[in-house]
Computed example of a mutant assay.
Amino acid sequence: MDVFSDLIRGVRAHGSLFGSSTLSPPWALRFVDGAPLTLCTVLTGTGWIVPESRPPEPLRARETVVVRGPATFTFVDEVGTRAEPIACGEHCAAPGQGGTRHRRGWSDHGGDAADGRGTTTLIVGAYPLRGEISRHLLDALPAVLRVDAGGTADPVLDHLAAEVSVDVPGQQAVLDRLLDWMLVCTLREWFDRPGGEPPAWWAAQRDPVVGDALRLLHTEPAAPWTVAALAERTGVSRSTLAKRFADLVGEPPLTYLTRWRMTLAADLLIEQDAATVADIARAVGYSDPFGFSAAFKRVRGLNPSEFRRTATPASPAAEGSASISTPRNSAAAEPRR
């Protein structure tokens, strides 16, 4: 599994807030829930995203803006609009709640312009995130990012436009998956934008040596890795791998592995209530729970039991959530060099 796939697997639009509204100016929709990630795009027309304590961002047809929570934001017809803001959140997404034309899972072709001219069609999706794995992805994103029209997300918009125009059984499941697809395409475009500064792991994935090493570490995190074993699997010398990995990722391979194992362990500690510390140690590659606890405290600042007591319980596990599995080969304490 590549790094990006691993980080985004906990980001799922599972029954999330999804709205399609056709708006005639003036308007001001204030999104008050502060979701970890909210994606906004317009199929037709224009508008402005006004984030809390950030400069306004114009949003034209088929452009996409992603806002990182917990800050709120407002979608307006123009900066300084005379419209009174309407609070939009989970409860105004359903018919008859909140008095707005914002809906969950279907479109509303309301508005004053009967022929549709002068209107803006907004699509918005909010993503609940799960655990420490997803937080690594959030840490790589700015408060607001935008992607222009004409990229790989355009075909997804065509599917979204078709789906929100009807009200049929199974629609929410289709919209959820289209939202997932839309977010992946949007983030790819943003990470690859000209002149951008993507996180080190994004660029490193494309290196023929380091990319293979990262995929191995993410596919088999509990394997008894050494630098020599990883170098053998990637077809280079130990010294070549060590230097190339540190140069591109910013830290040595086994330091990266330890941090990733502790990220996996943190989610397991929250999600798997019945699992013991020894169970979780084995699941992330440690045969010795004491060695695992020492590594966890060094990386996270708390031992596993303290972390479990103080951590906020995760939301119900979404598709692709972490689970306990016992590896065929377990490393004893720290990865060997």
Rank of each mutant, 00 (worst) to 15 (best):
I123A: 00
I123E: 03
I123P: 02
V124I: 15
V124F: 15
G125D: 06
G125E: 05
G125M: 09
A126F: 01
A126Q: 11
A126K: 05
A126S: 11
A126E: 13
Y127Q: 05
Y127T: 04
Y127I: 04
Y127H: 08
P128S: 10
P128G: 10
P128F: 07
P128W: 07
L129C: 11
L129G: 04
L129F: 14
R130W: 14
R130L: 08
G131S: 01
G131W: 00
G131I: 01
G131A: 01
E132T: 11
E132C: 10
E132N: 09
E132G: 06
E132Q: 15
E132D: 13
I133R: 15
I133E: 14
I133G: 11
I133S: 12
I133Q: 14
I133L: 12
S134P: 04
S134T: 07
S134I: 01
S134C: 07
S134G: 14
R135A: 09
H136V: 04
H136F: 09
H136Q: 13
H136I: 03
L137V: 10
L137G: 13
L138C: 10
D139T: 06
D139Q: 12
D139E: 14
A140M: 01
L141E: 09
L141V: 09
L141Y: 13
L141A: 12
L141D: 10
P142F: 07
P142K: 05
P142C: 05
P142R: 05
A143F: 03
A143E: 11
A143K: 03
A143C: 03
A143T: 04
A143Y: 02
A143I: 00
A143D: 12
A143G: 10
V144K: 06
V144Y: 07
V144N: 07
V144C: 08
L145G: 13
L145Q: 13
L145V: 09
R146F: 05
R146M: 08
V147N: 09
V147M: 08
V147P: 08
D148C: 12
D148G: 12
D148H: 15
D148V: 10
A149I: 01
A149N: 04
A149P: 02
G150I: 00
G150L: 00
G150D: 02
G151R: 03
G151F: 01
G151I: 00
G151L: 00
G151E: 02
T152V: 12
T152N: 14
T152H: 15
T152Y: 12
T152D: 11
A153I: 10
A153N: 15
A153M: 13
A153P: 12
P155F: 08
P155Y: 09
P155D: 08
V156Y: 03
V156T: 09
V156C: 03
V156I: 11
V156E: 03
V156S: 02
L157T: 06
L157R: 13
L157E: 11
D158S: 03
D158W: 00
D158C: 02
D158P: 00
H159N: 01
H159P: 00
H159W: 04
H159D: 05
H159E: 05
H159K: 04
H159Y: 04
L160F: 12
L160Y: 09
